[in-house]
């Protein structure tokens, strides 16, 4: 057996893993931001709706949601498993990212809003220019956690047949009878992806930190 080709076969799934992540994570961020703003500033009804959304989405295993969303979406429009899987993971992630951003929004003191209103800013402007920039800084650390989870959960799209890392590891382990090596390689690639991402986000956190005297 040619170990080089063995590894290369699994590693070539990395592009799918990265692509799925790069769709799911920003989609989850976009939805999560909007949902968290509705949650925190939207008034009673929207808060209730968002709270239900969050509870339901976080109460079901991602793989089950993936299937539900996949068959719901692909029943109506013709989407490739890759896109359906990525979008589904993004929707799952939006519930978690909503909670992360909600926590960050709430951790910005209400007095900041009052100070912004006092110079004549509307609520919307204050949220945009004063609250969100401060909340985002506080969200980076918990968000890097979610980024790691989405990278790892991207392996779930293997269930839809997307030839990403895990799918390939499974295929090659079956055809070569080398499951141990196959899954070790897959695990190492995931680990590297998560490790590098967390390092990058740590760097971002440090760069964005507001200067202050000790």
């Amino acid at each position: 057996m040619d170990v080089g080709r063995f590894i290369q076969y699994i590693a070539s799934g990395t592009a799918y893993t990265v692509s799925v992540t790069l769709i799911a994570l920003p989609l989850g961020l976009f939805l999560g931001l909007i949902f968290s703003l509705l949650y925190v500033y939207g008034g009673k009804v929207l808060t209730r709706i968002m709270s239900i959304y969050s509870t339901v989405m976080r109460g079901i295993p991602p793989i089950v949601l993936l299937f539900i969303l996949y068959f719901m979406v692909s029943g109506n429009i013709n989407l490739s498993p890759f896109w359906a899987g990525s979008i589904s993971l993004g929707i799952v992630s939006s519930a978690y990212q909503m909670e992360i951003i909600r926590g960050a929004l709430l951790s910005v003191s209400g007095a900041q809003m009052m100070a912004a209103r006092a110079i004549g800013m509307s609520r919307m402007r204050a949220i945009k220019h004063i609250i969100i920039p401060q909340a985002f800084r506080m969200a980076i650390c918990p968000w890097s956690n979610e980024a790691a989870i989405v990278i790892k959960d991207s392996s779930l799209v293997y269930a839809l047949g997307v030839p990403e890392i895990l799918r390939r590891a499974q295929l090659i382990s079956a055809s070569t009878q080398q499951p141990f090596l196959a899954f070790i390689v897959a695990g190492l690639i995931y680990f590297m992806l998560v490790f590098v991402t967390n390092r990058l986000l740590d760097g971002l956190d440090k760069r964005m930190r507001i200067p202050a005297n000790p």
Partner: peptide, 28 residues
């Protein structure tokens, strides 16, 4: 919002915008 533009307010706890420099606090 229009009223508050014409009524300056200074708070006990300063309440500067923490993520902005002194200049940007005044400028925003």
């Amino acid at each position: 919002d229009e009223v508050r533009q014409h009524v300056g307010m200074v708070f006990q706890n300063f309440l500067l915008f923490n993520h902005l420099t002194a200049l940007d606090n005044v400028k925003i």
